[in-house]
Design a protein around this nucleic acid. Sequence first.
DNA 1: ACCTGAACACCGTTCAAGT
DNA 2: ACCTGAACACCGTTCAAGT
Lengths: 246, 246
Amino acid sequence: MPAKTNVSTEPSKQRRGRKPTGSPDALTKQRIVAAGLTLLDVQGAHGFSVRDLARALDVYPASIYWHMGSRNGLLAAMVAAVLADVAPIETHTRWQDWLRDLFGRYRAAIRCHPQAAALIGAQLVSNASIDFDLIEAILRTLSDAGFRDARLREAFSVVMAAQVGFVTTEFAPAPEEHAEQWSADMQGLIHSVDATRCPILAANLDQMTNQSFALRWENGRTAPMDTAFRLYVDTVIAGLEVLARQ
Amino acid sequence: MPAKTNVSTEPSKQRRGRKPTGSPDALTKQRIVAAGLTLLDVQGAHGFSVRDLARALDVYPASIYWHMGSRNGLLAAMVAAVLADVAPIETHTRWQDWLRDLFGRYRAAIRCHPQAAALIGAQLVSNASIDFDLIEAILRTLSDAGFRDARLREAFSVVMAAQVGFVTTEFAPAPEEHAEQWSADMQGLIHSVDATRCPILAANLDQMTNQSFALRWENGRTAPMDTAFRLYVDTVIAGLEVLARQ
DNA sequence: ACCTGAACACCGTTCAAGT
DNA sequence: ACCTGAACACCGTTCAAGT
């Protein structure tokens, strides 16, 4: 982590002492989570720190600990806020369309806070607040599709993994350290591919560069992968259609 | 982060001065990466620190920086080591079997170093060393399946996302902070589900508890999801079969 | 070329004490 | 109940200096 500008650890001199409990800028879980998300957006999951958040809210770090318990608790609450409204409302469509809607809504939620992606796929902290209604809705949808018993439970995990998988990868953070240098290296490396050893790759190289996984240096925030995502969703749903019939 | 035992920042008094260049315990990238992986296995991705690694190798942190450049560079090299042999060798099978093999080999590689999972799915640092041969092999396989042009390139990203998605989630780290407390909370919460509001979930609750995504408190290291993974792979391959015919 | 020794600017977390 | 103020035990990274 490169040096930050040297800032004090204390709240600003402007406001000493505590705000009244009913005051609009009193510290609440809601305000902390909201401020946390805007800080996450600019700093990224890696650079996010409780101390920075405390500075942004003009309080001491310990105040945040009093409300949120720990850094992980804070991050979990932020994730929950991002994913608050992913469950589709309408329920009387074809199961395929419902799933397509679910995947799309999940991706849309992440696009609002792309830096949150890194906190979800790779972190098992969906804790505290499990969305039972969403789980039930997925189970009902898969039941409509024809899955039963053990098959139903496994299909549930397939849907959960499919929901998170593509998007987590699409919005995986690029190393912001020496971005310009890194993209140059990457482009150089990519164009060094041996066309006789890798003919298909060579033929598709220009169109895959910075567009396909493993060959890009930007992530979904700046280089969204809309068409690949659509094919991904189609693949999962078509696969479930096949397996539901067996 | 709870307090660690207080250890000094210097290498042990036993060995002062430098090892000869050809010595078996001379510092090399290889040795650093190997020691890094064993440290990762016991500390986890979150708790992994360059300083701890330096202590384990009995050198100063700066020595590691001289060889690896940065913490991210170190982690990238470790990831590359974990994934060194995922590319399937045999090439004259049905494309479906080749993909199944690829997915299985990726999961097997992660199972050797489960804590590395968090470094991959959520981090775009596949940098430096792109495995062109693997990319070409995937493209050739999808070409055999019937994908062409833009469809081929999109199918490539589908395969990459599918490869990483399930496994990243399966091995996502649980919060090791207050594990026993957390699992108790989780079990209590799960058994509080309303059976009239969520009948399908209620009927499957016992079999899903600590087995399905979103309802477990252990990860794939202690609670592997073999059958769900198999269905996931079947789903993706069946889906690709359908879309290849269109 | 490779490593030491020390410094710099940060962290997360805890805790007594205030209001 | 909610927050201050300060401390504790760590971090990643850099850099002059040694060999």
